[in-house]
Design a protein around this nucleic acid. Structure first.
Lengths: 93, 93
DNA sequence: CGTTCATATGAAGGAGTATTCATATGTTGT
DNA sequence: ACAACATATGAATACTCCTTCATATGAACG
C-alpha cells in the first residue's frame, strides 16, 4: 500500500471513482453500480485512495460513505486534464 | 509506451528528471550525471516524457537537448506536491 | 572511412500492481 | 441469535512497468 499521490492517481479506475464521487458523498455500492466495477475492486481502490488521504470515509448504518477529502483533489485532476489536452494539441502541430 | 499523463508522472525518476531540467535545457549526459542515473535509464524515461509531450527535444551536434515543454508541467508538479503535503497534515490530526 | 562521443533501442529479468474469487467482518432488523 | 445486507480482506493470478545489459544508431572530426 503506497502513499504516493501520483501513483495513486495513475490508475484510471481510481480516477474514475474520484470523478464519480465528485462533490457528493457515495457509498461503495453506488460507485460500483455507477462505474460497473466489481464491489471488491472498488473497495480495494477506495482503500488506496483513503490511504493517500484523497477520500474520507464515514459509516452510517450498514453503509460506508466516501467523499473526496478536498476540493484541491478535483482541481488537480482538472488541471492535469487540461494540461493533457494541451500537450496533445501541441503534438499534432 | 503509454501516453497517460498521471502514469508518466507516477514514476519518481521521471519526476526527478523534470525537476532536474526545470526551466533550463539539458542533454542526457548532464541529467544522467546530475541524478546519478544510468544513461540508458534516463534515455528510456526521456522517451516516455517525450511521448507524453512533457518534454521537447532538440538535436545540436552530438547532443540532444531536452526541455520541459510547458510551464504548466512544473506547475502541476508543484500543485501536486502541495496537495500531497496538505493531505499528510490532515491525516496526522 | 574509421574512431570517438552522445544517445537510443531491444530484450530480459525482476518488482510491483490490478483484478478476481472466496470469504470474513460488521450492522440492522426480526 | 439469526438472516440479510454492505463492505472489507486475503490470496492468487495476470499483467504492467522499471531497470539493467548489450548493442545499435548517428554525428563530428581527424
Amino acid at each position: 500500500m503506497n502513499e504516493d499521490l501520483f501513483k495513486c492517481l495513475s490508475d484510471l479506475n481510481r480516477r474514475r471513482i474520484l470523478y464519480c464521487i465528485g462533490g457528493q458523498e457515495m457509498c461503495v455500492n453506488s460507485i460500483s453500480e455507477c462505474l460497473e466495477l466489481e464491489q471488491s475492486l472498488v473497495s480495494h481502490h477506495l482503500k488506496e485512495l483513503y490511504t493517500c488521504g484523497l477520500v474520507t470515509r464515514e459509516r452510517r448504518g450498514k453503509k460506508n460513505y466516501y467523499k473526496v477529502s478536498q476540493k484541491q483533489v478535483m482541481d488537480l485532476l482538472e488541471n492535469a486534464k487540461e494540461l493533457g489536452d494541451s500537450l496533445k494539441v501541441c503534438k499534432s502541430d
